[in-house]
């Protein structure tokens, strides 16, 4: 194995490590809401700097490799993919932090209703993040395409949550502040799934050299 191949291997490991940290942040942020655990929420907020640091570290490594190695073909695709993926992962980390902030606010007030759809959305979104990175490791286009498809489920759940909360607010204006915050949380998770979709699209670029971003679903096929 050449030095460059070793460096690429280390870069891949760093991305996976960042993905694992982000995924844990999403899990903990939502758990802090569902289990009304504000200490856990504060931990998520405190830990965000780790994600930011990995984002910068990976970017700097990519820039260094471009300058030193002049990567071509699949190496070039991998490094540019890494740079774009980390931006999405970093944004997911920020959204997890936002969820934790809303959780702290919501945990101060009586529970509006049991959280059912939010954990479901979260499970799907987390699975999307995990599988997108898995697809990167395995070079699995089908898995990446599957991630992209799952985004629709999250979008639908988000609409459903919103409609339900709207009904609460119409019926009882005293629920507005809580319902609005939960709407935000739902939107944050929906955004996380969007970023996971971006990651999956870049994974497909990495494997096949095809840019499928901003195409319609039928064009993506």
């Amino acid at each position: 194995m050449t030095v460059f191949e070793k460096e690429l291997g280390e870069l891949k490991e760093k991305i996976l490590r960042m993905g694992a940290v982000v995924e844990a942040a999403i899990r903990d942020a939502v758990a802090s809401l569902v289990e009304r655990d504000s200490d856990l929420a504060r931990k998520v907020i405190e830990n965000d700097h780790k994600i930011n640091a990995l984002d910068v570290e990976i970017d700097e490594e990519c820039i260094r490799l471009i300058a030193i190695r002049q990567p071509r073909a699949r190496d070039l695709r991998f490094i540019t993919t890494a740079m774009k993926i980390t931006t999405d992962l970093e944004r997911m980390g920020d959204l997890a932090e936002d969820i934790a902030e809303r959780a702290i606010e919501l945990n101060e007030e009586p529970i509006l209703k049991p959280y059912i759809d939010i954990p479901r959305m979260t499970e799907i979104a987390r699975g999307m993040v995990r599988d997108a990175l898995d697809a990167l490791v395995k070079g699995d286009t089908e898995l990446a395409m599957d991630v992209i498809k799952r985004d629709d489920e999250v979008d639908m759940l988000n609409v459903q949550v919103f409609n339900e909360l709207l009904f609460f607010m119409i019926q009882d204006p005293s629920t507005v502040s809580r319902a609005t915050r939960i709407t935000y949380v739902s939107k944050y998770i929906e955004r996380i799934a969007d970023h996971a979709t971006n990651v999956a699209e870049m994974v497909i670029y990495n494997i096949e050299g095809k840019m499928i971003r901003h195409l319609t679903p039928s064009q993506k096929q």
């Binding site: 071509r72 073909a73 050299g209 095809k210």
Partner: peptide, 12 residues
């Protein structure tokens, strides 16, 4: 195309 996404394994 050759330098970003060649089609043949040997080229790559």
């Amino acid at each position: 195309k050759i330098f970003t996404a060649p089609t043949k394994k040997l080229t790559e």
